[in-house]
Write a protein that binds this DNA or RNA. Structure first.
Length: 316
DNA sequence: GTTTGCGCTCC
DNA sequence: GGAGCGCAAAC
């Protein structure tokens, strides 16, 4: 169990109301940031303290693993120079009974914060580049006991917002945009929308390249789902959305796990299972039995899509 | 006035 | 690559 602290900047309101935190994947100059990478590390159930404008007003719990998502439209002009591709981490937020001024805590809290990647600088000012920072249990308990929100975290989080809800929202918006896109022909629009569900031309294109589920060896066409390797919502154009090389035929449960990043593949066709899913669950799903489908190497045209899946969808 | 953003420097 | 500083900008 890890404990987290987030320094919201101008997007405090949007993130609390929306039930998430979002960061770019990279700094605007392209370099990595530990504060951004932390969104990939946070796991469901872990607590987060929200800090903004000198106050702790909200406390949250991570409600699902982070996933690749474009900068939320509700940010508007804020964060114009942030990279648009980022991580979205679903968080279930609750308001604390009484907001806490940071000034009343900082003297006691400062010595409990990490030397590196601290959310505050030595003078007690919010650290400029800090976003999501990991704090110790001791630091978390200190804030928690000073403010009496310990029991707010005891409730079950199983019904809280999952990544799927954000994904569906994003897809619906994109679909609406596609319907209104005058630069596309009617049939093209129709096919792109069918492709979202793995139907139409896209499925036909995939079926000409793939013949069975690469996880379960299932071959029955009526049971196989045509799944995008690079997710439909993240494709940059019509070509990627309809390209058969950007698809796999998967059994329904394998499709869901592939979609959510629990499964990916090496270029030689060997399945990779994420450490974020237990061996026992994989066994219960019948995905860890031997022998699986024999690995079949991917073609050079499929590999860029797989690279994308491993780096942007697969759960590390 | 208070908090945040950005560019710069230092190690 | 991370931290600190000063000043500008935003609220």
């Amino acid at each position: 169990m890890r404990y987290w602290w987030v320094n919201h900047s101008k997007t405090y309101r949007q993130e609390i109301d929306g039930g998430y935190i979002w960061s770019p994947k990279r700094e605007s100059n392209g370099t990595r940031s530990q504060f951004y990478d932390n969104l990939r590390i946070a796991a469901p159930g872990e607590p987060i303290i929200s800090y903004a404008k000198g106050n702790i007003i909200d406390i949250g719990r991570v409600s699902d693993f982070s996933f690749t998502a474009m900068k939320p439209t509700e940010f508007g002009g804020t964060g114009k120079n942030w990279n648009p591709e980022g991580w979205l981490l679903p968080v279930s937020w609750s308001r604390v009974a009484k907001p806490i001024r940071i000034d009343s805590l900082i003297l006691g809290l400062r010595p409990l914060l990490p030397e590196k990647y601290s959310p505050f600088d030595r003078t007690g000012r919010g650290a400029q580049k800090a976003y999501l920072t990991e704090i110790s249990k001791i630091a978390f308990d200190f804030v928690s006991s000073s403010s009496g929100f310990d029991k707010m975290l005891e409730n079950d989080f199983i019904n809280e917002t999952r990544s799927d809800e954000f994904v569906v929202k994003e897809e619906n918006k994109l679909e609406h945009d596609l319907e209104c896109d005058e630069s596309l022909s009617t049939t093209e629009r129709y096919q792109l929308i069918l492709a979202r569900k793995g139907q139409g031309i896209f499925r036909k294109n995939v079926a000409s390249i793939e013949s069975m589920c690469r996880i379960t060896a299932l071959k029955t066409p009526t049971l196989l789902i045509a799944s995008h390797i690079k997710p439909w919502r993240l494709c940059s154009n019509s070509l990627e959305r309809l390209d058969g090389n950007n698809g796999l035929l998967l059994a329904p449960h394998a499709d869901l796990l592939f979609d959510r990043g629990y499964i990916s593949f090496d270029n030689d066709g060997t399945p990779i299972f994420s450490g974020k899913i237990s061996e026992n669950d994989l066994m219960l799903l019948g995905l860890k039995r031997t022998p699986l489908a024999p690995p079949l190497a991917f073609s050079p045209k499929q590999i860029p899509y797989l690279d994308y899946h491993r780096s942007c969808v697969f759960l590390l």
